[in-house]
């Protein structure tokens, strides 16, 4: 709770003064439950809770201006957008403390590729969450004949995949009494899992974890495989055939995987070509399915 309150306040610090005052005026319970700040030009600041969005109107009512969005971006990039040009091109910026700022605006195309985003129209500030211990019951269930089998996490967006995966990485990396620690390599393409800032992960990732940030998953998997000799590789959100090819290559070297995909359950993801291809590789024999929102979130393990 304390840590989540601090993270809420860290996220609120990115907001311009007037909006920040509104955000900080929320109760401790609301702060702990908040998942995102959402700023859209012409609308009041809204906070995303597990049950939905709620506007913070203030008195007199305050609406978000384009200058507010620019101020958030300035703070998120430490007044240096050039440093985050690559991630801005992908629509987000990871901030010290683990928050992620998502951006929407007008895309500037160069040779058919998004060169950058201009004239921001909305910004979301995702508040980093760390819930140490949530994977304690899950970790022992991911072993098969004494060997760590890895797992594929399935949940809809905002379903808590990343938070659970992060805690599981910590368990795998630190080990528990019955299971020895393992070397985990995290390929953190969007900087969301470990949120490395200035070389230091902003979340507890375990004592045997190596984090590679900002590299495409396929390339990153090959890099950590060559460089760090991992026993387990963790990646967030598998979306491309190249990711699967790299995972198969690494699995042939005896590496287990922890990965996430968007979806509701196994049947639903089987309908999608990319996920079907992933399942056909038989890289995963354990599937962690997350259901519900907020405090009603539950996970179950399916074997295959």
């Amino acid at each position: 709770m304390e840590k989540n309150l601090a993270r809420y306040e860290d996220a609120a610090r990115l907001l311009p003064e007037g909006l920040r005052r509104l955000a900080l005026a929320c109760s401790a319970g609301e702060k702990a439950a908040a998942e995102e700040f959402r700023l859209r030009t012409g609308c009041p600041l809204s906070v995303l809770y597990p049950e939905g969005e709620r506007f913070l109107r203030g008195s007199p009512p305050q609406t978000v201006t384009p200058a507010d969005l620019q101020a958030v971006l300035d703070r998120a990039t430490s007044f240096s957008v050039y440093r985050c040009a690559d991630s801005i091109r992908c629509g987000y910026v990871t901030v010290q403390g683990g928050c992620r700022v998502g951006l929407c605006g007008t895309a500037v195309l160069r040779q058919g590729q998004v060169a950058t985003l201009q004239e921001l129209s909305s910004v979301s500030v995702r508040i980093a969450k760390e819930l140490p211990g949530i994977a304690s019951g899950l970790y022992p269930r991911l072993f098969q004949a004494g060997r760590f089998a890895g797992a594929l996490f399935i949940a809809p967006p905002g379903g808590g995949k990343t938070t659970l995966l992060r805690d599981l990485i910590r368990y795998v990396s630190d080990g528990i009494e019955e299971h020895a620690p393992m070397r985990v390599a995290v390929v953190d393409e969007r900087g969301e899992l470990a949120a490395v800032c200035g070389g230091t992960p902003q979340f507890q990732m375990g004592a045997h974890t190596d984090v590679l940030t900002g590299v495409a998953k396929a390339e990153g998997i090959e890099m950590v495989l060559r460089a760090m000799n991992p026993e387990v590789i963790a990646v967030d959100e598998i979306t491309a055939p190249d990711d699967i090819r790299a995972m198969v290559l690494a699995a042939n070297c005896g590496v287990s995987f922890l990965a996430t995909v968007h979806g509701v359950d196994l049947d639903e993801i089987r309908q999608r070509r990319i996920c079907r291809a992933l399942l056909e590789t038989e890289l995963f024999h354990r599937f962690v399915i997350l259901e519900g929102r907020g405090s009603g979130r539950r996970w179950r393990v399916e074997k295959c």
Partner: peptide
Amino acid sequence: VPQALRSYDTDQI
């Protein structure tokens, strides 16, 4: 100078 640093493109900066 600060306006120049607002650019996304380092060459432009």
